[in-house]
Design a protein around this nucleic acid. Structure first.
Lengths: 125, 125
DNA sequence: CATGTGTACTATGACGGATAGTACACTAAG
DNA sequence: CTTAGTGTACTATCCGTCATAGTACACATG
């Protein structure tokens, strides 16, 4: 369910957050679906429960999930809406990179090509 | 010449590297142009000389600049070519982000729009 | 010789990320 | 009630990266 790169630059807990949001945005996780428990997922990913807890706490802070003490943690009702805003942040990052590439005189066609290639891959898969 | 964000997530020395490369890619810095000295630029940017040295050392390691002991540091002849590869890395990052957005069912038009907006800004400026 | 270069080195502080371990409260199932 | 599985809250520790401070040396130019 999750793909973690333990040795990358981006913190593990951020990877969890980001991937959870994408699963919601894509519809793989729907409202009231249960998220993996802190303990079970920490074993699956060979990750410290605290690290996972940090990610989940942030998801809850953002209103994306809610927790039922003693029961579990679930996807909140309007998670998809909130996540939409998060996707916008990725788009903003692309815009920032594009600005830099523009400054460096990289042709726009090359950038557009990369975007289309990415979406092409997605369609196949 | 350089714009540094001391409190951002990306290390200062990386910002120096990245911006130097963009200045070369855009043609603002040409072969045998002299780069600011470690000491002078460190004062201008209110940065530790060691931090700057770290950035410059990396530029040299990449073959983008060369140093003449006791004289100064200059842009190497084929810096532009090497930097081209670096720009490709930015494009790769855009492609990676685009893949994620595709996974999240974000329409491609929205992404393309961001790219075009960025290049639009660049043209005006 | 004095100044301004590049270079090398050690040491230190600050911060974030991840880990280990423990503890408590709650719920559901037996 | 007991047990197991949840969420939650702590503290403490380790480690790596980043940035800083300070010193020292070699070289070139004037």
């Amino acid at each position: 369910m999750f793909q973690i790169d333990k040795y990358g630059r981006t913190p593990i807990y951020e990877q969890i957050i980001e991937q959870s949001e994408r699963l919601i945005a894509s519809g793989s996780l729907k409202p009231d679906d249960q998220l993996p428990s802190v303990r079970s997922l920490s074993q699956t990913l060979s990750i410290n429960p605290n690290t996972l807890q940090k990610a989940y706490a942030e998801l809850e802070r953002r209103g994306i999930s809610y927790s039922v003490p003693g029961n579990g943690r679930f996807v909140s009702k309007d998670a998809a809406i909130i996540v939409g805003g998060r996707m916008q942040e990725m788009i903003d990052e692309i815009e920032l990179l594009s600005e830099k590439l523009c400054t460096a005189n990289v042709p726009i066609e090359q950038v557009i090509g990369a975007v289309e290639a990415a979406f092409g891959k997605g369609v196949k898969a």
